[in-house]
Structures are given as C-alpha cells and as structure tokens.
C-alpha cells in the first residue's frame, strides 16, 4: 500500500526523488489521510520558502481536526501543488499521487538515508 519508491517520516509524510532532477516531492501517507478524515484545507509554505528537516512546514485541517505538517528534508520550496487550494480532497483520494504538496530542492540528500523505507514505515504504523 505504501509505495517503495520513497521514504517516510514517523509523522506520516513521504518524500520521493524525481528522476532526472535534484528535486523531491513531499506529501502525506494514506494512513495519515485516513486518520484525518475529509481534508478541507491545507496551509503550505510559498515558493522560495525554506523548509527544515522534520521541522513544521504547514498545517492540514480536516472537518474534525487540525494537524501540523513536518518537512521530511531540508531545502527550498520550488513549487506548491496549486490544485489543493480548490481540491483538498485530492489528499484523501490520491495521497501518494495527485495529492502531493510540495516540490523541494534538497540541500542535503543524505537526510533521506535517515528516513524510513516502505517496509519499516508499514511495520511502524502496524504498531500504532
């Protein structure tokens, strides 16, 4: 269920390297969207903003709750998924695809090594 082409945080974000580019895409996992319920609003940094490794990068609101979003990596935001402003339900319907949140230019690719792979993440959520 969790694609093995990417890495995961214990806060339920994912990060995937883009082929032929030095950028990554960032989003939240299926498990996260399922726990949140219907997402109605996503507050994200702007293009050009810096994000920090496991530092707060935004907020996500469902009908019932507000949660913080954490960046899996350090870098600079190069694109924000503009569709989420009008279609926040993409986070529920396609969390690993069209529901992506940020495109980030990484400053320290070695950070990826410290994140969970799909198997470890699955084991982790299995214990929650």
């Amino acid at each position: 269920m969790n694609p093995d082409d990417r890495k995961y945080t214990r806060e339920h974000e994912w990060v995937v390297s883009e082929a032929g580019a030095d950028t990554v895409l960032v989003g939240i996992t299926h498990y996260a969207q399922d726990q949140l319920g219907d997402v109605v609003y996503v507050e994200l940094p702007a293009v050009g903003d810096a994000v920090g490794y496991l530092a707060k990068m935004g907020e996500i609101e469902s009908v019932k709750a507000v949660s913080d979003l954490f960046s899996p990596i350090t870098g600079q935001v190069t694109e924000v998924n503009a569709r989420l402003a009008q279609e926040p339900e993409l986070v529920n319907n396609d969390p690993f695809g069209d529901g992506w949140m940020l495109r980030v230019s990484m400053s320290d690719p070695a950070e990826l090594d410290s994140l969970l792979d799909a198997a470890s993440y699955e084991e982790y959520i299995g214990q929650l």
């Binding site: 806060e11 939240i28 996260a32 996500i60 949660s67 913080d68 979003l69 929650l128």
Partner: peptide, 8 residues
Amino acid sequence: MTTDLSPA
C-alpha cells in the same frame, strides 16, 4: 503530521 492516539 501529529496524531494523538491514546489507548483507553
């Protein structure tokens, strides 16, 4: 994301 799952 932060989740609060308190067992009870």
